[in-house]
Each structure stands twice: as structure tokens, then as C-alpha cells.
Write a protein that binds this DNA or RNA. Sequence first.
DNA 1: CTGAAAGCGCTTACAG
DNA 2: CTGAAAGCGCTTACAG
Lengths: 354, 354
Amino acid sequence: MNDSSSTGGGAVRAPAARSRRRATGRTTLADVAALAGVSPITASRVVAGKTTVRPELAERVRAAVEHLGYRPDPSARALASAKSSHVVVLIPLLSNTLFTELLEAVQDVMWDAGYPIFVGITQYRPEREAALLDSYLSHRPAGLILTGFDRSESQRRLIESSRTPCVHVMELSDDPEVHCVGFSQVGAAQAVARHLLERGRRRIAFVGAQLDPRTLERAEGFRSVLQAAGCHDPRLEILDPRPSSAALGAEVFRRLMAAHPDLDAVFFCNDDLAHGGLLEALRLGVPVPGRVSVVGFNDLPGNAQMLPALSSLRTPRREVGDVAARMLLRLMRGEPVDMPAVDLGFELKVRASS
Amino acid sequence: MNDSSSTGGGAVRAPAARSRRRATGRTTLADVAALAGVSPITASRVVAGKTTVRPELAERVRAAVEHLGYRPDPSARALASAKSSHVVVLIPLLSNTLFTELLEAVQDVMWDAGYPIFVGITQYRPEREAALLDSYLSHRPAGLILTGFDRSESQRRLIESSRTPCVHVMELSDDPEVHCVGFSQVGAAQAVARHLLERGRRRIAFVGAQLDPRTLERAEGFRSVLQAAGCHDPRLEILDPRPSSAALGAEVFRRLMAAHPDLDAVFFCNDDLAHGGLLEALRLGVPVPGRVSVVGFNDLPGNAQMLPALSSLRTPRREVGDVAARMLLRLMRGEPVDMPAVDLGFELKVRASS
DNA sequence: CTGAAAGCGCTTACAG
DNA sequence: CTGAAAGCGCTTACAG
């Protein structure tokens, strides 16, 4: 009941007294200050959570805010302080559960901290990311979360000169100036390769799609281990530029089996590829893991239901999102950060397929 | 080379002449106007794309914008015009490909039109949606895209009173005041039920999870057709409140087969449930479609790879996103919209599983 | 701890 | 078609 008076205030106050007035009808900080009997600056300080206000006054202001249903105007705030109160997150795409889980974790933390997030989809295209960065940076975001490090020198300078706190996710850097949260893509792929070698496999194929930087790092890790074991065959390294999908996994598995009947293991760089491969094995009557071991990557939901259940390298994407968001929050507040690079590791989930 | 002078301008112009000046170093519309030799208002009109400026002046302004690398400040713009230039999209979650595809389509259209989008995840929780709406509306977005109609009267009033152009997606309404783009959830489920009846199935189960409004509408459509055919058995209607997943689909399928050995078809309300069901059938040795037909919903990627390939009802989520975004753009520009409700239909993809 | 003044960068209304 | 003035709602310095 009383609430209605706070929004319908347009008719009550400043009734077209001054002709040039542009009435938006919005409850402003001035309204709050007037009701609390303080100056707008003091009201501003209370609303912004500064502690330099006498408790008694602060209480009066809070009561006024409550009574009027006051909500600060983000635009006015951003204009006056030269800083917006939202966070920008740039990810390659939404069609990989990896990124949606990361995003949800970031959003959970940022929402609690009062920061809405802008999500930009780069589609793994550098020009698209550059355009997004350019556009979003003009909003002067409070913080920035970027996927990986694959960008041009001029973009790095753009970010640098904007002085926007920034955290990179999914990869690690040695540069102490760079803040990042992730795990070793190379190391993760090495763990999978070693696992297959330990299972006695020697003719091991690697299947990567999309060919983004992280996929190439995994290929590198895989290759290094196989070369050291003296069983690396470049013909078993399939790098397909098309986007990752079950259909592609099935297609590649079929081709591999036809060309290399002695194949005894396949490491798919993504679980959806592996699902396709596993189903194709079923279709072809190739026993898994009897004849061929199959391992996926990321360990997205659904692996346990596969036939056989799919072994996969579990990547900590929720944790990455969570830790990265908290780190960014510290940077945004100017608080010290323990370590610029946080390695969250990974875990090989061995199931029936290997 | 020349570009660097536009950003490094802080040292060049207004060198701490007036003491109170807060130097942001940003290139402003005033800089553009000065260089072009026009007033800021004229420059503003050119930048905003108004046609009421003499071509010659407009050209000078555009050249100045180009030369200085001027980018309008969104906050200042929003404050002065009482309108932001971004669009808010509220969806239940990111873990359903349905919504990520819809989102990508919306983003594609809005990006081209120059509107960044804010994405809010409601997690199917009304309180969460209410909080998001409250927060995002305070930014005075240029437009709003909402999933479905399931919200309280007070929220509807909040949206209404904000006068934000709004389009609803995934469901249809009769109300001519309401703008929406979607298809008939009831009709889609009826199509699946009829298809199974035509296949000679009589003991048909329905499996729905999450129990959001659209799932319940599908249950309703399914029920109506089976009742009309005289073969509705309430015990075969499984409505599970847990989130949809392959694991849940597998679990429910196993339970159903154990309790009702005479079952001859299952309609899963989501493809991930159906995938789990199909894999469980393989595991149990239940022939599909020999003994049991299986149909999914949405027709997300990967159905063709399943064993057997999964029949599913294809929903037009990309088209929904695309059409909804274009409709919203028209509303935002105050242009007339042909029809307030656009029904995009659906298509039953019959594959080997039914 | 508190406040009067100025300013953030743009656009709205009003005159010409 | 063009512009001088005022204002959007807040915060930053600067004084007390």
C-alpha cells in the first residue's frame, strides 16, 4: 500500500514548477537525502557502504532508502565514477557444457557480490573477440574474464590501457603480471596417454576437433608421452578443424578403424566426440575396451550412462569459474591476491571403456 | 601512429588548467564537435543516426569521429536519455542446449543491431527470476526477452510499468497485448502421442522431468490424445521433479520396464532423458523399437548417432530466438509488429527408434 | 565525520 | 537544419 506512493511520486513532487525539468519520476538519492535530513553525499556514502558515516545518520539513510524503495541508477553511478558495476565474461561458445558450467559458477559468485555479468560469445574467432572486447570495454566494466591467452598484442594493450582488472581462465601462464585460473592442458593429456600405455596400449590414436589453442596443447602433451614411449605414429593423430560433435567422433572412429585395423586405443579430445566414437564402435561391433580402449576429455555429464561407461579426464570447470570470479572480485576491490596463477589440477576418471 | 594521439589526448588538452576538472582522458563528443566545427548537439545527432543534419556537416562529423576514434559513452547516453542500449534475456538455465541455441540466435541478431545482451539464469526459480528482473530493470534496458509466462501479477506489473518492450519465448498466448514467439507445447506432445498410436503402440509411457510449465503442457497434450484413444494409464505417466539428465532417463526406463513389462513405447520429454533410456535399453537387452518405441523431444544434436537413431520432436529454438529478437527490435524502435504472437510450429523427426 | 560545488558525457526540449 | 542552456543522477575532490 505505502509502496505505491514511492513510485507514483511524480505527481507529488516538483509538479512542473521549473519548465525545463525533465521528469523521469524516478526516486533519486536527493529524495533519500531529503527524507533522512542529510546531504546527498552522505546518503551516497551510506548507500555505497562506506564506513565513514556516523551510525545514527547511516541508520536514518537506510530507513529512507527502505521507505522510498530507492534503487541507485547504474548509469549515473558509472558516469560519475567512470566505472560500471558489471563484469564481462568472454567465452568461445555456449554449445560446450564446459563453458556453460564455468559460466554458471562465475554468475553465482558475481550475482552474490552484486555484479551482473555480460556474456560475449567469441565463436573461437579472434576478430569476433576483438570486436566484443572493443565494444564491451567502452562500457568500462568493473572486471573482465577471458578464456585463454590467444590474442593479439594490440588487444593486450587495449585491455592493459583500460586498466580493467582481468582474469584468464582455462590456461596457465608463467607471467607474474597475468592473473589466471586453470590447469595444465598439456599435463592433462599426458595423464591420459600414460594411462593408456599402462593399460598396455601401443597403437593409440588422438582425435582433436575445433583446433583451438587448448586442443593443440593437448595434442602436444599426448605426442610427447607417446614419443618418449617410442610408439608415436603421426598417422594416428587426427586434427579436424570442424566443431566437436558426436557425429564427427563417429565419423573419425570409423575412418580410423578402416585405415588402421591394429588400433588399440583412441583418446578423444572432447566427450561428445568420444560418445560418437563409442556408439560407432557398438554399431561396428568393435569391442570396447576388449579391442579398443576409449577415453574422453572433460568428463561432462552422461559418461557413466554410456555403453560401456566412458573413461574421461575430469576438468575442474566449475572450480575454475568459482575461483576466477573470487580472484577477480579481489582485484576489483584492490585487495592483494596470493598467487597470480592458480592451478586447479585435473582427475582421470577411469570407467569401463579403458 | 596517428591513432595514438587520440587516446593520449589527456596530456595534450586541458592540462590541469581548471583545478576541479576530473580528467578521464576519454575522447568526448565535445572533442568531435570541436574538430568538426559544429555544436555538440549536431555531432550527437549524426552519431545517433538522425537524418536531420545537412549532409556536408554530417560528413565532417563522421570524419572527426573516425579520426579521433570516438566511442560514445553508454553510461552518459543512458543517463541523459533514460534508456540503456542493451537487451536483457532471462532463461531458465544454460545446461539445456535448447536455451543456448536460442541465446546464440538472439545474440547474433542483437549484436548486428548494436545491442549487447545481458543474460540472466533463473534456474527455474520464480524468486530468482523476480530478483533478476528487479535488478536488471533498474538498468533501464532497451528490451527484454523472457521465457514463458509463468510469473506473478506483481512482476507483470513491474515489467508493464517499466514500459520496457518485451517479447516472450517458447510459449504462445492469446492475449493480443502480449508479444510472444514459440510453438504449441501441447500440440507438439499430441503429435508425438499420435505418432506412437499410429505405430500400433497402446502401452505408452510419458517421462517428464524438472516439471516446468512447458513440461506440464506436454504432459497435458500427451494425456489428451491417449485418453481420446482409450489407452491412457496414469501409472505410465512419470513426472519427476529432478533436473533432466541421461542418468535420470536411464533410471526411469529401468523402473518402468520392471513395473510394466507390457510397455511398448516411451515418450521422453527431453532428448537427454531419451538418450539415457535408450542406453539403458541396450544394457537391459530390450529391443528398440522391436519391443519398445522411444521418442525424444527437442531434437538436439547427437540423436542421429544414437543406437538406434532417436526419433524426436524438433523444436525451432534457433528460429524462435531469431524471430523474437527481430520482433523486439521493432518494438524497441516503435515500429508496428504484424502479429503479436508468432507460432513457429514443430516437426516430428522419425528415425529408427520408433 | 559532513557538505556545497562542480563535473562525468551525453541528450532533451526549446528557440531560432 | 542548427545551437545555447539545462539537466539526467550520481560521485569526486576539496574544505571544513
